[in-house]
Write a protein that binds this DNA or RNA. Sequence first.
DNA 1: CGTGTAAGGAATTCTGACACG
DNA 2: CGTGTAAGGAATTCTGACACG
Lengths: 110, 110
Amino acid sequence: MATHSQKDAYLYKKVITIGTVCELTGLSERQIRYYEKRKLIFPERTERGNRKYSFADVEALMDIANKMEDGMQTSELRKEMQRKEDKRYDTKLRERMIRGQLNAYFNKRD
Amino acid sequence: MATHSQKDAYLYKKVITIGTVCELTGLSERQIRYYEKRKLIFPERTERGNRKYSFADVEALMDIANKMEDGMQTSELRKEMQRKEDKRYDTKLRERMIRGQLNAYFNKRD
DNA sequence: CGTGTAAGGAATTCTGACACG
DNA sequence: CGTGTAAGGAATTCTGACACG
């Protein structure tokens, strides 16, 4: 993942088991697995198949929990996520284009 | 623990099970439990008794592993740790005394 | 739609001990 | 001293399903 810096190393490392995530978030295993099925979180798996979560996942789950309490549905949350991803992609693309323009102007290579 | 700042939150949070620590450090469960008995690391426990480690613990274990490879004994490692703790304490004490002197001079309260 | 639960199996972790050295 | 291992039990996690709504 080239999406985050070195400093965030521990934020994205998937090392937490589902039981601990339950304690951290107050959610049930059932809920956590369901949000995964609805593509709101993406834990990794051990060889055997046990889920492993990152602190970023825990933060995401707390956000999800709040919005679910407010009556939002998983499908809406999914769309919201998708929009944010699209925006991130747009920004990156725009930056790339500007860089390209500059390099062309100055006759450089990237 | 007032020993570390808010930014370190994820570094000191005890959320990792021993199996994951094994993968992260390359050490065996036996070794990790032994270093605990020798007071080199201090995992927390779940209600049931399962050990939980922090990323800081993992870093410490990697350091321990290196020094054990170099032939150092756990007793020496323990002393080394103790010395560092003492030094930290000295520093804090000195800071406190200086602050006290200044406050006295300016007739303030802390 | 979102979540609870009982079911059964497989992997995880724990402790205390024997072993070698 | 530091670490491997077999032993037996208890808790963890997994999946698919029935349930309610």
